[in-house]
Design a binder for these strands. Structure first.
Length: 753
DNA sequence: CATTTAAAAGTTTTT
DNA sequence: CTTTTAAATG
């Protein structure tokens, strides 16, 4: 690809200059040396980052090959690449863009031998490492009630992110808890190595170790990357900080962009200190402040600023806008979480008539569990929605089970995955047979995987005393694994997945169950089959290893497809970096937002305040805040500690007074009995025919529908999936008729009972 | 050994 | 209220 001609370059530079304000331009065109861009919410930092790269290439003739950019999601990375491709009109594949985790994985794959990894590694997600911790506690006879595995895992993870290895942890360990952690940490690391696996934290830690031990390899990278750009710098942890220092140590062209007010990941090791002390770390750093907000109306911005200024530890800054005041921030008091959901639904529909499509609106909450009340209300009112986060696709049980087969075939040393699938689907291999197999492997000094392969033999060795069912089961498993293993290198991942699903008869078995749950699983498995078949790795060959890596590094936002006529629901954390015309923040109550722990610890409280601030500043046109006077909390009855203290920090003149009332309800109020699901009055507002809503959503179980010939009826059963979907509808005369979901003329019947 | 049933325990946020 | 773990049954 030839570089743009001189005229073209000039035109591009001119274009950049015209599109930017003076501050942004300063950041984009600043020359060599460390650069700190303090970018307030909505001040166009993503544009600055992208344009800076474009400028480096166009004006200074820096090859994309020499630039690395770190983004917060893979999606953001993709968008940046796409935009750069448009701006520069050339291939951008030579530039390294991605999240810390995916870039690190890339580095590690290139130096497997140097990090002491034989063959190839698999990546353990949070669930995998938790399983590993549990298993170890079991082996070491450490009570999981006295020492909750989640907490242990958290301690190990935090230590790793702070670059505290087992030896240092051991030296510093004080008290019985830390000594127990030491024992588990030791074994945990040992198992990871013997399984040829890396956990999420290893992805950051191992490159640091690699660069420490092999200065020659570090040189390779620090000489290559003449320019480093990092987004969301306020959320980097210690390991990431060190990594950046190492990479920047040759050229010192480190450009970090962030906003200390938006730091929300302290709990997973992020250190705001990294951004606050950037200037003392790099005394010659140029600092550019972006304080002009282009996103939100003046009212929204004033409300958000009013809240965040209550934080003590922050760099002072003043966001401003010349936009119109806009609608006031609406505060809604609800009776309980159901009422809250109903009120939100009502407003969503109202705003829809005012030109904000469902896709323009988002509901943000503090914890995933809050989504349930909304799902119920939205479903029963026929409002289509999508949830981002929660249980991820690739973390679902049936999906992880199938992936575990691929992982074992890819890396036979992965004993965690192997023991996961050894009896899934049930093949008569219980604790006993597994133990049998383990000790056999140990005796012979072979891996568990090889032991399973030996089970294929017609006359297995005498030592391997297995009973009938287990023996047959392991034989079949051994054959499948041997087959997968032999094909792993030169067969497409879709082929291997299909072979696994077919051999194990997974779909057939689920179909026998005939339950709604099984139906959902089948749908997921078909989606996995489609995804693997469509997969093309970097070389277009669909390598299983590459697929597995990609799958373990997708972020929650990556998975989501935006657009379409769907209301979006997600946590405040997920909303980072996004923007919506209409934002609802729900559950704005003490104990929830701020979360309980924040009420005790001042630093936590500030983080909760920042989280609220992040949520508020996602809104472009309208912001609605809701809270409930009482809230159902699991089985423990009601709890709501009343309006959030943060709400009182919003200047009263940018709030809609009509709905604002701060009277608190008596704490001793009896929990109200579950009421029938409230319905929104009126005719159906949504015109499904014009939207992109799939029939599977419209024709959900229990939905009221209308047929042009037969009149109104109720969906009582569903058969098949996707375009094969058929539904049984019971009409008022009691007759049940089966229709194909598409082209049947069935229409949803709004909100009447 | 697997499946079913009963009791118990657990709930922030995520790469 | 849901999910996970333990015990009891087939």
């Amino acid at each position: 690809m030839s570089s743009p001609g001189l005229n073209q370059t000039d035109a591009l530079i001119e274009q950049l200059e015209a599109a930017l304000n003076p501050r942004q331009l300063e950041a984009v065109t600043y020359g060599d040396g460390p650069l700190l861009v303090l970018a307030g919410a909505g001040s166009g930092k993503t544009r600055v980052l992208t344009f800076r790269v474009a400028y480096l290439v166009a004006a200074s003739d820096i090859p994309l090959h020499d630039i690395m950019a770190v983004t917060f999601t893979n999606k953001a990375a993709g968008e940046m690449k796409e935009r750069l491709g448009e701006l520069l009109g050339s291939a951008v594949d030579r530039m390294w863009v991605g999240t810390f985790h995916s870039l690190c994985a890339r580095v590690l794959r290139r130096h497997l031998d140097a990090i002491g990894i034989r063959g190839d590694f698999v990546i353990y997600d949070a669930d995998d490492s938790l399983r590993l911790v549990k298993r170890i506690q079991n082996d070491l006879a450490i009570s999981t009630t006295d020492y909750p595995p989640r907490q242990i895992r958290g301690s190990i993870s935090r230590a790793k992110n702070d670059l505290i290895d087992v030896e240092i942890y051991d030296q510093r360990a004080r008290g019985s808890y830390q000594h127990v952690v030491t024992d588990i940490y030791k074994k945990y690391e040992k198992r990871l190595r013997s399984h040829n696996a890396l956990d999420f934290d290893d992805l950051l830690v191992m490159p640091v170790r690699l660069f420490e031990e092999r200065p020659d390899i570090l040189d390779l990278y620090r000489n290559r990357f003449r320019y480093l750009l990092v987004d969301e710098y306020q959320d980097t942890n210690h390991a990431q900080y060190i990594l950046l220092s190492m990479l920047a140590s040759a050229h010192r062209n480190l450009c970090v962009v962030g906003d200390d007010d938006q730091s929300i990941y302290r709990w997973r090791g992020a250190q705001v200190r990294n951004i606050l002390e950037f200037e003392s770390e790099y005394p010659d750093a140029k600092v550019v402040r972006l304080e002009r907000n282009y996103r939100s109306t003046a009212n929204i911005l004033r409300a958000a600023s009013g809240v965040v200024t209550n934080n003590v530890s922050r760099k002072s800054k003043r966001l401003w806008t010349d936009r119109e005041p806009g609608a006031p921030v609406v505060v809604v008091q609800a009776i309980d979480e159901r009422d809250e959901a109903t009120q939100v639904a009502r407003r969503v529909l109202d705003l829809r008539t005012k030109g904000h499509s469902l896709g323009d609106q988002v509901v943000l909450y503090r914890i995933n569990a809050q989504s349930r009340a909304f799902e119920e209300t939205l479903t029963s009112n026929g409002i289509p929605y999508r949830i981002i986060g929660g249980l991820r696709f690739y973390e679902r049980r049936e999906i992880k089970d199938i992936l575990a087969y691929l992982r074992v075939a890819f890396n036979p040393l992965d004993e965690l995955s192997l023991s996961r699938i050894i009896n899934v689907p049930p093949r008569g291999v219980g604790e006993r047979s597994l133990q049998q197999l383990r000790s056999f492997a140990e005796e012979r000094g072979i891996t568990l995987f090889d032991a399973v392969l030996i089970c294929r033999e017609d006359d297995p060795p005498m030592e391997l005393d297995l009973r009938g069912r287990a023996r047959a089961g392991l034989k079949a498993l051994g054959e499948l694994l041997a087959d997968l293993r032999s094909k792993i290198q030169d067969h497409h991942v879709g082929e291997l997945t299909a072979a696994t699903v077919k051999t194990l008869q997974i779909i057939e078995k689920l179909e026998e169950e005939r339950s709604l749950e099984a139906e959902g699983r089948i749908e997921n498995i078909k989606e996995l089959l489609a995804a693997t078949q469509a997969y093309q790795g970097s070389d277009g060959k669909g390598s299983t290893g590459e697929f597995l890596e990609e799958v373990s590094l997708v972020t929650q936002v990556d998975e989501a497809e935006f657009g379409g006529e769907l209301l979006t629901l997600m946590t405040l954390h997920c909303a980072k970096g996004l923007e919506f015309p209409v934002v609802f923040i729900v559950g704005v109550e003490d104990g929830l937002l701020p979360w309980h722990r924040g009420l005790k610890d001042p630093e936590e409280l500030e983080e909760e305040r920042r989280l609220f601030y992040v949520g508020m500043t996602r809104a472009k046109e309208r912001l609605v805040l809701t809270y409930a006077s009482s809230r159902y909390q699991g089985g423990f009855g009601m709890g709501s500690q009343g309006v959030s203290r943060f709400l009182k920090e919003i200047p009263s003149d940018c709030i809609s007074k009509g709905d604002f009332s701060v009277r608190s309800t008596p704490r001793w109020r009896k929990p109200s009995r579950p009421k029938p699901q409230p319905r929104i009055e009126g005719e159906a507002v949504l015109d499904y025919s014009s939207s992109q809503v799939p029939p599977s959503v419209i024709l959900a179980m229990g939905k009221r529908v209308k047929h042009p010939e037969y009149g109104t009826g109720l969906v009582v059963a569903r058969h098949g999936f996707g375009s094969d979907l058929e539904v049984d509808v019971r009409f008022s005369d009691g007759g049940i008729i089966r229709f194909p979901a598409e082209g049947s003329g069935l229409k949803p019947l709004g909100f009447e009972e």
